[in-house]
Design a protein around this nucleic acid. Structure first.
Length: 888
DNA sequence: ACTTTCACG
DNA sequence: ACGTACGTGAAAGTT
């Protein structure tokens, strides 16, 4: 299409609105203050923006269906009959979608007795005659019949940013038909969604075959006598009338008696004022933000707060906190609070706000006092971040009362942003911007040089913390989560901060040594691969590698991804032996991973001040209650393969004469399952300290003694145990251990017969989730499962497995958190030098001086064993050595 | 910014 | 018939 040509955009309003509605159907938060649903409006607007941007049309029209009855229902009473009623949540949004269009300056139109399709069909032909390039946007494939050299039909896809464009060539490629034959196809095959039947037993495939031969419905019947005798022929003859009727129904009118013309579709300027009122009424804040842009005057919407700029001169003006509570916020420029530059701070005492960029003021008298005296309570946004930041100034923050981030995470970990502004909005508080809104993002991000602007933002943050305290504490109490907060998460934040600050020492020389060794080996393998491939290419590129393996070397395709051939390990393993290149690629992959992620990656994040890495544990991220570790991630350091495990040689104690000590909970998840399910057999196995996988093997294979359990049988039983913890499915298990689905199903059935308590737990927990909408750990940590009653099988099944797994994984996470808090307390009380360094889900890593080793060993066992009292004992396995590698 | 792959529990 | 194991983070390539 040449640039001079004008574009006419025709949108099927009903169809796109339907797509929009179902794209975000399960997001219950899409309602405005009056309870009106807004999901369809939201997505419709997104799609509209997308296509407007893509096609820059001079003329636009959105067509809607006029009502229930049309000329089609007169011909065929059941037309669209089987269709379930439009949900009320969607139909209430149609008037608003039209309002949106008006504000956008876009014509919308409907015509009695006709469907949106017919309006579009008619205008598209008028547009073509007037020399327009026409684009039709719809979710309905029927409209592809309109495609011509001048008209493209764009079908909206599942997500809302993608569309598939049907030109005549694309229709040909997809169906092997010309666009107008789509009508004939519908005539023969019918259309389920519009509820017209077509010819009995003829579906899309058969219809296409017939049309390739006979061109049209008419053609089929002209040649019907030539066809050899078949069931299909009988059906065709019998349903002749239906076929013609259906073709007629499927035909989109191109001559509807429109009362508007092309001139009326000219796009007008958007009315910003109208849009603003509209977004405000619907509480579509992100659009409101987009509309006002980075206009700093948007701040005017917020109630202005008086803030005193603090200097060394007026420190004495800071009052004594009357109610013994202060709200405090420390701003740093960047995520990594172990090194991010300080931006400033603000605090509120007795309703007065004080702010400054000079964080050293915090070290002076009245300020350091309220931060460090335990009887003065401090409310913050993120305890751990604040503790670690202040620690850099030599200040030990004590007396934390309310932590907005932590409480918010406990209440609902599905909407868990780590941005104060975003989180405040989740809880209905809007008088504060998100950092992205205020500072900008990417290259545009900047800290304002103007004090008033910066202090205003920080002050609004503090005000938000204070405003939400009472309400969120009340919700915590309602959920019976007070202990979880006070006895677990809040003290844990303190412990984690200490671990992060302590850091773990890295032997960079060892890493450098490995790096050059790996470099050589990689070069060697690379050369062999190039020789075997007969050319040089980027082995790290799945695309290029796929091309070499499956096109050039013509190896069989095992699996495809949505972008091309899969080259994952599971695939390569199946290709082993077919070409020597495979083994080399596997070796290359393994080494390259170690080199880039663990050797080079780790070296990049070692602090040059102390030769340590200081990871950050994300305490408010996972859906189950586990921690995660970033920058670097120390929870996925290689261990399974010997080659990778050597990376652990680089993790060493910070003092000579000390050792790395590892303590891990043995089978903690299965023990938790034995506890919460109350299953007698499983509990007995743990009480008698039996090999749990061998025990399972004996049960499901009906063996009498442990001697009969071969390694292979044990391996299968182990996979079954894992499967049970993950929320089992026959398919998943069969994939994992390479058996048929039927066999897997048999295993599971036998398992449930032998462990009826587990079966009962699985059924009950899913039922609980259906009724309550959430599941809980033994410490009342919640996980909400909005999809548990979803009509989509996959989403629902996923929610069901999650319901089974989360209480198990989450309770195990709770237990080790308790152990960490107790361990930290004991080390402090006993004034021991040993330090807790890392947590890897079911394992704690310490550094211990040799002279403390015996005492420490005793202590760690005692503390971890007694973290909680379960119906089965907890078991801890310990090891130590001169590096992490040797602690095995 | 998204996708693929792969490291861990 | 549907098409999956549960929970994470980092690197590299591609768009």
């Amino acid at each position: 299409m040449t640039k001079q040509e004008k574009t006419l955009l025709l949108v099927d309003g009903n169809s796109v609105a339907f797509r929009a509605f179902f794209a975000l159907q399960n997001v219950s938060s899409f309602t405005n203050h009056a309870g009106l649903h807004t999901n369809a409006v939201y997505v419709f607007k997104k799609i509209l923006d997308n296509i407007l941007k893509k096609y820059s049309p001079a003329n636009v029209l959105v067509a809607f269906d006029a009502g229930k009855t049309t000329f089609r229902t007169k011909k065929f009473t059941d037309y669209k009959g089987g269709r379930s009623k439009t949900p009320g949540e969607l139909s209430e949004q149609f008037p608003y979608i039209k309002q949106l269009l008006v504000a956008y300056g876009i014509q919308n139109y409907e015509l009695t007795d006709y469907e949106a399709d017919d309006i579009i069909g008619t205008l598209s032909r008028q547009g073509e005659k007037a020399g327009y390039q026409v684009v039709v946007v719809t979710g309905d494939r029927d409209l592809t019949q309109l495609a011509t050299e001048q008209t493209t039909v764009a079908i909206t896809q599942k997500g809302f940013s993608e569309i598939e464009e049907y030109t005549p060539a694309h229709v040909q490629e997809k169906y092997g038909l010309v666009p107008k034959q789509i009508i004939d196809m519908k005539g023969l095959a019918g259309d389920n969604s519009d509820n017209y039947p077509g010819v009995t037993k003829v579906g899309e495939k058969t219809a296409i075959k017939l049309l390739k031969q006979y061109d049209s419905v008419e053609g089929v019947y002209e040649h019907i006598d030539e066809m050899k005798k078949s069931k299909m022929k009988e059906h065709l003859i019998e349903d002749r009338e239906t076929a013609f009727l259906c073709k007629d129904l499927a035909t989109i009118k191109t001559d509807a008696p429109l009362t508007i013309g092309l001139d009326d579709t000219k796009r007008q300027e958007a009315d910003t004022e109208k849009l603003r009122t509209f977004y405000e009424e619907l509480d579509l804040n992100s659009f409101l933000q987009e509309l006002t842009g980075e206009d700093p005057t948007a701040q005017q919407d917020f109630t202005a707060l008086d803030v005193t700029a603090l200097t060394s001169e007026n420190l004495a003006d800071v009052p004594v906190p009357a109610n013994q509570t202060v709200t405090f916020y420390l701003e740093m420029d960047g995520k990594n609070y172990h090194k991010a530059p300080f931006v400033g701070f603000v605090f509120e005492i007795n309703g007065e706000y004080f702010a400054s960029r000079d964080v050293e003021l915090l070290q002076s008298k009245p300020l350091v006092e309220f931060l460090t005296q335990p009887e003065i309570k401090v409310d913050v946004f993120d305890s751990k971040r604040t503790i670690a930041g202040l620690n850099r100034l030599g200040i030990t923050l004590t007396g934390i009362d309310f932590d907005l981030l932590l409480v918010s995470y406990l209440l609902n970990n599905t909407e868990n942003s780590d941005d104060l502004g975003e989180l405040a909005v989740v809880h209905g508080y809007r008088q504060v911007k998100s950092d992205e809104q205020f500072y900008g993002k990417g290259a545009k991000r900047a800290i304002p040089t103007d004090d008033d602007q910066l202090f205003a933002h920080l002050t609004h943050k503090v005000a938000a913390i204070a405003a939400l305290k009472t309400e969120l504490f009340q919700e915590l109490a309602d959920n019976e989560q007070e202990d979880l907060y006070w006895k677990m998460e809040l003290p844990l934040a303190q412990v984690l901060a200490k671990m992060e600050i302590a850091g773990i020492t890295v032997d960079t020389d060892r890493l450098e040594q490995m790096k050059s060794e790996f470099k050589e080996r990689l070069a060697q393998i690379e050369q062999e691969i190039f020789n075997e491939a007969g050319e040089e290419f980027n082995i790290n590129s799945p695309k290029q590698l796929g091309h070499i393996l499956f096109e050039k070397l013509e190896l069989p395709v095992i699996k495809k991804t949505k972008t091309g051939y899969s080259t994952a390990v599971s695939v390569l393993e199946k290709l082993r032996g077919m070409s020597p290149i495979i083994d080399n690629i596997l070796a290359y992959r393994q080494l390259a991973k170690l080199q880039s992620t663990y050797i080079e990656g780790l070296l990049k994040v070692v602090f040059d001040t102390d030769q340590k890495v200081h990871t950050r544990y994300t305490q408010t991220l996972t859906a189950t209650g586990r921690l995660s570790s970033v920058d670097p991630n120390l929870q996925n350091i290689p261990v399974r393969l010997e080659e990778g495990r050597k990376i652990r040689q680089a993790f060493v104690p910070s003092h000579p004469g000390w050792q790395i000590f590892s303590a891990d909970y043995s089978q903690i998840e299965l023990r938790v399952l034995a506890h919460i399910s109350g299953d007698e057999h499983m509990q007995a196995a743990f009480r008698e300290d039996r090999d749990i996988h061998a025990n399972t093997a004996m049960q499901i294979f009906g063996l009498d003694s442990e001697d009969e359990v071969t390694p292979n049988i044990r391996r299968q039983a182990k996979a079954v145990n894992f499967g049970i913890v993950y929320g089992i499915s026959d398919y998943g298990l069969s994939q994992n251990i390479g058996i048929t689905r039927k066999q897997a199903k048999q295993f599971i059935e036998t398992y449930f017969e032998k462990f009826p308590g587990v079966k009962k737990y699985m059924d009950e927990i899913v039922q609980h989730a259906r009724e309550q909408g959430f599941v809980e750990t033994i410490f009342h940590r919640r996980r909400y499962l909005p999809d548990i009653n979803h009509k989509n099988f996959n989403l629902r099944s996923f929610a069901e497995r999650t319901a089974m797994n989360s209480p198990i994984q989450g309770s195990a996470a709770d237990i080790i958190k308790v152990a960490m808090i107790n361990m930290d307390r004991q080390l402090t009380e006993k004034q021991m030098q040993s330090r807790m360094l890392l947590q890897v889900h079911d394992e704690l890593i310490f550094e211990v001086p040799n002279e403390e080793m015996a005492d420490f060993q005793k202590l760690v066992n005692q503390v971890m064993d007694s973290a909680v009292e379960l119906a089965v004992p907890l078991k801890v396995e310990c090891a130590h050595g001169k590096t992490w590698f040797n602690a095995k």
